[in-house]
Amino acid sequence: MAVEERDGHSGYLTTGHEWNGIKELNTPVPRLVYLTLAVTALFAVGYWILMPAFPLGSTFTKGLLGADDRTAVTAAVKQAQTDRARWTDLIAAKSYDDIQGDPRLMAQVRATGAVLFGDNCAACHQRDARGGNGFPNLTTQSWLWGGTPEAIAETIRVGVNAAHPNTRVSQMPAFGRDGVLKRDEMENVVAYVMSLSAPPAGKVSADRIAAGKAVFTANCAACHGPEGRGNLELGAPNLTDSHWIYGSDATALYAGVWGGLQNQMPSWEGRLSALDRKILVLYILDRRGP
């Protein structure tokens, strides 16, 4: 073994070994290392005594504080509910009208509703609640199932074509796929439906619209009403306004008539509390435009 030597720069002895030119100093471990080791170990031991820490066969040490994440979070959520009660109780108790007339409560509805809506509803109805791609715009006066607070609350509670036992059920038949109507009949009725909300574009003949009207009366009026103003009982939309769920062009309308429509709105009863749902109703009504 080589002899220990002293490093000129630091003044420490080497261990006397050399590996491919590398030597080591035998510098003592700085105090600070032991000190921090002791401090962190002390912290650890203290933590182990206070908290659940070590396994013992079929159980574990529970810790002096008896802390448990699950009870803690349940308590925190409860506490938060209690803290919110000063305004949530008012929302729960008051009528829709009263709340809408109370700017302070409405400010709270807006703050809360935006996030509830963002995390649960925006996936379908978009962050601005304007829908699209087959999902209704919730900011219009045009409602499928009614625009009263109670009707909206019910839609949210049970959903449409959802898994809830009392779900609202709606279906527009597939006139084309099921062979009820022929191609030209469907084209005519589409032309007629388009004429209900907008003056017919130049090319479309009056004959065609008249023919379409006949088809409509025979096949569609049952749901959409004789004038096409819709039916809130069946969730059949009003076809005379300018709001469209699936698009306003002839192709989109034809596709609906041909293949039928049966979209789904989930039921939120099992997922959101009655309070949250009430806030959502108020939030939607608040966003409603002309």
Partner: peptide, 8 residues
């Protein structure tokens, strides 16, 4: 599970 529809 159950939060959104199949179509969605």
């Amino acid at each position: 599970g159950g939060k959104y529809s199949d179509q969605w």
